[in-house]
Amino acid sequence: MNVKRVLLIEGCVNLFICCVKLFVGISANSAAVIADAVHSFTDVVNNIMAWMATNIANSPADKDHQYGHQKFEQLAVFGLASLLSIVAFEMLINAYNRFGQAVEQNYLGLIVLTGTLVVNILLTIWQRYWAKKLASDLLEADASHTLSDVLTTIVVIVGWQLAAHGYYWLDTVFAILVSLLIFYLAFKLFQRAIPILVDYSDVDPSAVSAEINRLDSVDSVVRVRSRKVPNGRVADLIVTVDPQLTTADSHLIADEIERVLAKKFNIQDVLVHIEPRHRITDHET
């Protein structure tokens, strides 16, 4: 089993759940259930985009993408967040237009919808198992998304049953709640993708400089830059050392700096540029 196969199986299950919910929603004339079906469809789109992004992200670096393709995964997440925002807005409009319309009881549909709830619970547990086994952040995030489907379906079932007993306006209220939940999911996805896409730095340069300056072999830290990447953090820095040191000694200093950054700041990819002290001083003056 690998990440792509897990996503493929999950996509097939989500497509089935989407079709079932849409059938029940149309049969019962429930805006809340239809909204939940649309939400499930976005899960299918999410699985497709995640599968494609994983395929591209795992591609080796080439002449056009010399730093690799890892950011394609975050582009897919950004695209999904945009899609979710549009879907949530459309659901709000649809819920408003259907306000007060009669909602029908459908016990067979209720049983079927409850069945999809159980399937989603089992799917969440299964995804989390493989996310931990494969050490995949993407599967872990997707499992959290599937868990939100469980909560959404519970809310939808409660709203549908109340509306079917004559409280028609509650169907619209619960449809709006589902829309707001989708907006929240979109916000969390934006929050995850944007910092990586814009090279956001979540490490304090002064803290890094302070740790590096503790090393006896380092004269000073001239510059520290870091950024988030899909699999952690990367950094590059310029330090000055005694100009009398050999190339081999300078290399050992760079190795020591890499170990410090990995241990203290969880920065696993580091580029250290070492300059002789007088060269920096002459340049600055």
Results as ranks from 00 to 15, higher is better:
2 N>P: 06
6 V>R: 13
6 V>Y: 06
8 L>R: 06
9 I>V: 06
10 E>K: 07
14 N>W: 03
14 N>I: 10
15 L>R: 08
15 L>T: 03
16 F>S: 13
16 F>C: 07
17 I>K: 01
17 I>Y: 00
18 C>K: 00
18 C>H: 10
26 I>S: 08
26 I>T: 14
26 I>D: 01
29 N>E: 15
33 V>I: 15
34 I>W: 10
34 I>T: 13
34 I>V: 15
38 V>M: 06
38 V>F: 14
39 H>N: 09
41 F>A: 11
41 F>P: 01
42 T>I: 02
44 V>M: 01
46 N>A: 12
47 N>D: 05
51 W>H: 15
54 T>M: 12
55 N>V: 05
56 I>G: 03
59 S>F: 02
63 K>Y: 14
64 D>T: 06
65 H>V: 10
66 Q>E: 13
67 Y>A: 09
69 H>F: 12
69 H>K: 12
70 Q>R: 12
70 Q>Y: 03
74 Q>P: 00
76 A>Y: 05
78 F>T: 07
79 G>T: 06
83 L>K: 00
88 A>T: 05
90 E>P: 06
91 M>N: 11
96 Y>F: 10
98 R>F: 04
99 F>K: 12
102 A>L: 08
103 V>F: 06
103 V>D: 05
105 Q>L: 10
107 Y>M: 04
113 L>W: 03
113 L>E: 07
115 G>D: 07
117 L>N: 12
118 V>Y: 10
136 S>I: 11
138 L>Q: 14
141 A>P: 00
144 S>P: 00
144 S>Q: 04
144 S>N: 05
146 T>R: 05
147 L>E: 00
148 S>N: 10
152 T>H: 04
153 T>M: 03
154 I>F: 11
155 V>Y: 03
160 W>V: 07
161 Q>A: 05
161 Q>N: 15
163 A>H: 04
166 G>C: 04
167 Y>T: 00
168 Y>H: 04
169 W>L: 00
170 L>Q: 02
172 T>A: 15
172 T>H: 02
172 T>G: 08
176 I>E: 08
176 I>M: 09
181 L>D: 10
182 I>V: 15
184 Y>M: 03
185 L>F: 01
189 L>I: 11
191 Q>N: 09
192 R>E: 06
195 P>Q: 04
198 V>I: 14
199 D>E: 10
205 P>Y: 05
211 E>S: 14
213 N>P: 02
217 S>M: 09
217 S>Y: 02
218 V>P: 08
219 D>Q: 12
219 D>A: 07
221 V>H: 11
221 V>Y: 11
223 R>H: 13
225 R>S: 05
227 R>T: 08
232 G>Y: 10
234 V>A: 05
237 L>K: 09
241 V>P: 07
242 D>T: 03
243 P>K: 08
244 Q>S: 11
244 Q>W: 02
248 A>E: 13
249 D>I: 04
249 D>Y: 02
254 A>N: 15
255 D>G: 01
256 E>A: 14
263 K>Y: 05
266 N>D: 13
268 Q>L: 11
271 L>E: 04
274 I>T: 15
280 I>N: 09
281 T>F: 04
